[in-house]
Amino acid sequence: MADTATLSAAGGSEPAIGRGLKGLLLVAIPVFLVGWLIIYPIFAAILSTLFVAGPDGVQFSTASYQFFFSDPYSRANLALTLWTTSICAVLLLLVGLPIALYLRFSTSRFADLVQSLAIFPMFVPSIILSYALIRTIGPNGTVDILLNAVGLPKLPTPYLTPWGPVIGLVWDNLPLTVLMLTAGLAGISSPSIEAARDVGAGPIRVFWYIILPRMGNSILVTISFTVLGIFSSFTLPYVLGPASPEMMGPFMLRTFNDLYDPLNAKTQAVISFVFCLFFGLFYVWSIARNQRSQSR
């Protein structure tokens, strides 16, 4: 009897160990790739900006960071990037939330068309979008031609101004924003909305007191995602944005390629990474908070 019990115990634990090893093997390749292609370059970049080769050999130095934060042009580029990111996040919420609300609560067949249109930009490459916007809102673009046709003066074009990338980035990030907000709204049950209307809340009060507080987490996650994407965007700011100041993406490329200054390019990358890391941590915190509230 004792032998049987011992055998059973041994037989039961062996497959568990096997399963554990298989699980580790399955995640080993992705973990290795993340370590090799993401974690290692991050630490390598950070270390190479702090330990710089000098006349007396490699030594610790924060000179490149001091330069970045004392250089008005670098600070202006960072400020433009933060401004563009903030404006885009606000505009995406302002545009995306009404669309998401419509898609969540509409029973009309027209909603399918709206959803298709809202998701369409996801399938348009950024470079195509950039040139499409130049042809539309750029000098002598479609808008100018139409205004001219009805005898109206040209409007100041947003092309090559800070508003150029804003328009492009909002258009480009709208699908992801709408999808995430719609997913968040799906978690709010219809009876809870109807209960609010039943006790006397009109549509605006339902939105303000019932919907908005319950989708705060979805909004935080949406903002985190869009901010991460926009802060590190390159193509749209490069093609549509102003030459000076410029967003961090084009700034890094120009510093590296045109000025042949890898140390300052890496410093700009590390500073951009720290900002993105902050939003990333914010996203992780939101997810953790959401999971805690769901488990209650």
């Binding site: 209960a195 006790v199 809340a201």
Partner: peptide, 20 residues
């Protein structure tokens, strides 16, 4: 009349309490 303007009160099957 819209629900908020009716003199009715409804109790739903799923309770529909506001968890926040």
């Amino acid at each position: 009349l819209s629900p908020e303007r009716r003199p009715t009160g409804m109790v739903f099957q799923s309770h529909a309490l506001w968890s926040h």
